[in-house]
Design a binder for these strands. Structure first.
Lengths: 163, 163
DNA sequence: CTCCTTGCAAAGCCTTTGCATTTAC
DNA sequence: GTAAATGCAAAGGCTTTGCAAGGAG
């Protein structure tokens, strides 16, 4: 997924601050550091990866706070939750990337990213048509690699790793 | 979601049998009963609901087998996994319903179903464009009810239930 | 008759929670 | 100063797994 510009990150932070103010919640350094790390990253992360990255950067934060914050960011549509067919939830930035989806191979587990311009508009329409306003969406396509050879190769390698 | 006709269920069973044969796996009664129950149902179920329903029908089955079977059915694109923002995964039939999605209110948790005719074709194109064949897809829209009053009412009721 | 499937119970593991402490405003 | 946020550790709860018994092909 595309890199997020510094200006965009600033905008998202600003947005987050205003949300917090509205709801009489607090804009703490830890919350901001989670938000920033997600927007600096160009891929999907799980809660633990996020926790580790932040600790490596010297941010003193606990898993509990990471989970709390992710939930908060999700409720305000600043991050998306994704189920990539692994055992746990992944998260990624969502503001300014409303055209983003994942394609997952059910055989080898390969994940590709795709974008579609028409998507956002379509989702918007569906939402309003059913009496909702759209915050974010989560779209995963499950299928199989067309390149059977490379796919089988990846399956083999995954087996090796396990042994 | 729409009711599945008896003929369609028969088709799906047949499909499942052929998959099992191809892969030298076994088409057991327990697996069939899970498949049937999902296709008979017109809504999303979680693993435990499925387990309870089957037991009520006198099917002697264990949770372990339910989980195993769901995973199997998912890999062969006969069921879809959905994250409705609750704590655990939901499953629903997917064969013959490739135009189905959920809209979830982040405030009150209300879930609506929607269908879109263009969706399947669009997903198909995206998949092949990225070197995959499409099996199934999972699409959730997260937003907020436009009817703020009814939404607030549901939030209130949910609080009551907890207490 | 062989190998796959099932079930039980236990383990695993991500995620949540209670409560005391710290901190934003 | 007050209500919210944080962290720790422990609990929670869905899901997976090991292994022995059962069943499909």
């Amino acid at each position: 997924m595309k890199k997020t510009s510094a200006e965009t990150i600033a905008k998202v932070e600003c947005l987050f601050k205003s949300y917090m103010k509205e709801e009489k919640l607090r804009c703490t350094q830890k919350r901001l550091s989670v938000l920033r790390e997600i927007y600096r990253s160009n891929t999907h992360l799980d809660a633990d990866e996020l926790f580790v990255r932040l600790r490596e950067q010297g941010v003193g934060i606990s898993r509990a706070t990471v989970y709390h914050t992710l939930d908060l960011l999700f409720r305000y549509n600043l991050v998306t939750k994704i189920d990539l067919g692994h055992k746990h939830t992944h998260y990624e930035k969502s503001w300014g990337v409303a055209d983003h989806l994942h394609i997952i191979c059910l055989k080898c587990g390969k994940v590709s990213e795709a974008t579609s311009e028409d998507l956002a508009g379509m989702m918007e329409k569906l939402c309003t048509g059913h009496g909702y306003s759209l915050g974010s969406f989560s779209l995963q396509l499950f299928g199989e690699c067309l390149d059977k050879e490379a796919c089988a190769q990846r399956v083999k390698e995954a087996h090796k790793e396990k042994a």
